[in-house]
Design a protein around this nucleic acid. Structure first.
Lengths: 212, 212
DNA sequence: GTCTATAAGACGATAGAC
DNA sequence: GTCTATCGTCTTATAGAC
């Protein structure tokens, strides 16, 4: 046991550097897209020589893949809000809150995800056909049950889910447009709260879960 | 008047070739993003030598700018549906129909627009700060009047507009995801109709314009 | 107005010293 | 594990014959 800390140090160095690179990569991919992003830009933002990126991630595509998979994990976590709920008011409120929090705290990740889907999901196609489809089918079943139990109006569950995804994701993907229309300033705490409340109120009222 | 048609021919050739190039460019920019698109890909799709593209559009950026401006024109046209309306049911229904028709018939344009905004609107920033802002402010006023006249509930007009943009645009930008969740098949006529009806019903009910 | 050939530069990736 | 120097390729853009 002469050098008990050495192997752990190495692991930690790797873990930390990978994290630094992934954070920088997410930002650059979000701002420039996959094609517009360069390893040099990512390296500069991470404060590392370009060759080090290739030491940790063999290719640009492998780095991009890691960024996208990270985001998918976060997305799935938020998706769980739906499960514990007893009805649409609980479930949909919690889901909107969670997704809006992602749009606010993780706008770069949201943009990379949007870009990936817009370009035909070259990396995520497998996940979309397995994990995402299963999750969606499960949530469609839950919504159907809510409708049967007369907890909400008979709204098509899939189009309702698309509406939830669209409205919440919009605040990240089109954040620049919203900021411009807000006089060039980011939304304040109060405005984010209002956004959430408006979405929840319109949708929950619209599906007949809240009294009009 | 020896050759009266010659100058007109030239104009027509130019107009037609520019159109061909713009159509191809929109598709390639939508599929690959600005950075991922190459003049070679666009030339191949247009069926022209690469050098011809540079004859009609000096640089890749100028070509991209033309594509984006075309889309903005279409977007503005749909926006007019709001004006002739006597109330939220007319106005918002017509606007949703128009925007959904754009998402369906012009998905590539929608994606280029989304990509442009996501990357900070490098080309459209001026338009967003002038034309888009004016349009938005005008529509906010209309919605405010509807609220005063008790034609709908007091919903924040801006967040309502964002909701309309988000839900309709989603069917173009995330069309690949929707298609995947639809068993790999594009939405049918009937499904598009259902999508429109769902959105209209949920939003119009949600803002208190339709009875719950 | 069309097209081939090519210049000039940027990019992803790697070799190899430390 | 870090970093400099560089290779080979791809891309934008242009020159110049037709």
């Amino acid at each position: 046991m002469a050098e008990p800390t050495r192997p752990m140090r190495r692991q930690e160095i790797r873990r930390e550097n990978e994290k630094t690179i992934l954070v920088a990569a997410e930002k650059v991919f979000a701002e420039a897209g996959f094609g517009g992003a360069t390893m040099q830009l990512i390296a500069d933002l991470a404060g590392l020589p370009k060759a080090n990126l290739h030491y940790y991630f063999a290719t640009k595509e492998e780095l991009y893949r890691s960024v996208v998979q990270n985001i998918f994990e976060i997305w799935l976590q938020a998706a769980n809000c739906f499960d514990a709920a007893r009805g649409p008011i609980d479930g949909i409120s919690a889901y909107i809150d969670a997704k809006m929090e992602i749009s606010r705290r993780h706008p770069d990740g949201s943009k990379v995800w949007a870009s990936e889907v817009m370009h035909g999901a070259p990396v995520l196609q497998d996940y979309m056909e397995s994990t995402l489809r299963e999750w969606t089918d499960g949530r469609v079943e839950i919504i159907r049950r809510w409708i049967e139990e007369a907890k909400m109006d008979p709204v098509d569950p899939r189009h309702l889910l698309y509406m939830l995804w669209a409205t919440t994701q919009h605040y990240a993907d089109f954040g620049h447009q919203i900021e411009t229309l807000n006089g060039g300033k980011p939304l304040s705490d109060r405005q984010w709260r209002e956004a959430k409340e408006n979405i929840k109120r319109v949708i929950l009222t619209g599906i007949g879960a809240l009294p009009a």
